[in-house]
């Protein structure tokens, strides 16, 4: 117990005290809230509400509606944070080279054959979770992370070598990632750019028609609610998350001899 530890303990107990007081004095609402907060209730009410068309997003899953419609800008930024972290990973590990023929075989044949069966199933389940995000629990990010599990499984069981031979290289994943992000940005701008030349009012990230703008994304496809742009966003987000996280996994799996190559790419410090 040196002086630093005591100071730390004191400040942390202050934090605990403050937060506990906040909770027990009902600062975060009554301790057993029986009602929803009015804002939460507004979201639940408006999320699927064709009877009040100017505020709805035609999504049965309220969380997805909030994520991609009511608070779509947050999610756009969140996607960019993921993009920035991939770029940051590339900054730290730039200059690596993907070497094949390092002779790492992966696990036994039994686990390989099991993986061959399982991996496509996981990917399909991920895609289904993503594109049904507005109907059932799920969404682009959920689907993407589920699918990444398949990719990491393949890396673990078959080794990185297998992915390279299948043509999955980091630069291709990066390209896929950038294209997905571009598609999301274009989708968010689509209604606004359609409206602008004809001088019709439309908003960035707009999904359904509003009181002061008549443009709308397609709401229903063959009797199934499509929730307009939410479907598209989920699809693109799936691509982004899958490619981005697989990229990150591949970067961290890089073998020692591959990592050595980043030393050769050293630059002058200025």
């Amino acid at each position: 117990m040196n002086r630093k530890d005591i100071a730390l303990a004191l400040s942390l107990s202050l934090l605990v005290l403050a937060l506990s007081l906040t909770i027990s004095l009902e600062g975060l609402g009554p301790i057993v809230p029986r009602e929803l907060r009015p804002l939460g209730a507004s979201f639940v009410q408006n999320s699927y509400n064709p009877w009040n068309a100017s505020l709805t997003s035609l999504s049965l899953n309220v969380v997805t509606a909030i994520v991609w419609d009511y608070r779509g800008l947050d999610t756009l930024y969140e996607t960019l944070v993921l993009f920035a972290s991939i770029a940051a990973t590339l900054v730290v590990l730039r200059g690596y080279s993907e070497l094949s023929g390092l002779g790492i075989k992966g696990l036994s044949d039994v686990s390989k054959s099991v993986t061959v069966v399982i991996a496509p199933l996981i990917v399909v389940y991920g895609i289904a979770t993503a594109i049904h995000g507005h109907l059932t629990p799920g969404g682009g990010f959920q689907g993407g992370t589920i699918a990444v599990v398949a990719a990491t499984l393949i890396i673990a069981v078959f080794s990185l070598e297998y992915l390279y031979r299948r043509g999955v290289s980091t630069s291709r994943l990066m390209l896929l990632r950038i294209l997905g992000l571009l598609a999301i940005i274009l989708t968010s701008l689509s209604l606004a750019s359609i409206g602008m030349p004809s001088n019709v009012n439309a908003y960035i990230l707009q999904n359904m028609a509003k009181d002061d703008s008549a443009l709308s994304m397609p709401g229903v496809l063959f009797d199934t609610p499509l929730a307009g742009s939410i479907f598209l966003y989920n699809l693109f987000e799936f691509i982004i998350v899958f490619s981005g996280l697989t990229f990150a996994a591949m970067m961290l799996v890089l073998r020692e001899s591959e990592l050595e190559s980043i030393k050769e790419a050293a630059e002058v410090y200025e």
Binding site: L73, Y77, V81, A84, A88, V91, V92, A266, E267, E270
Partner: peptide
Amino acid sequence: NFFVSLELLAISSYALTAFYRD
């Protein structure tokens, strides 16, 4: 939204700080 923007600002600052990773 401020939090999300702050996080984007922060993570790109970390990355730019590490730009001379050698």
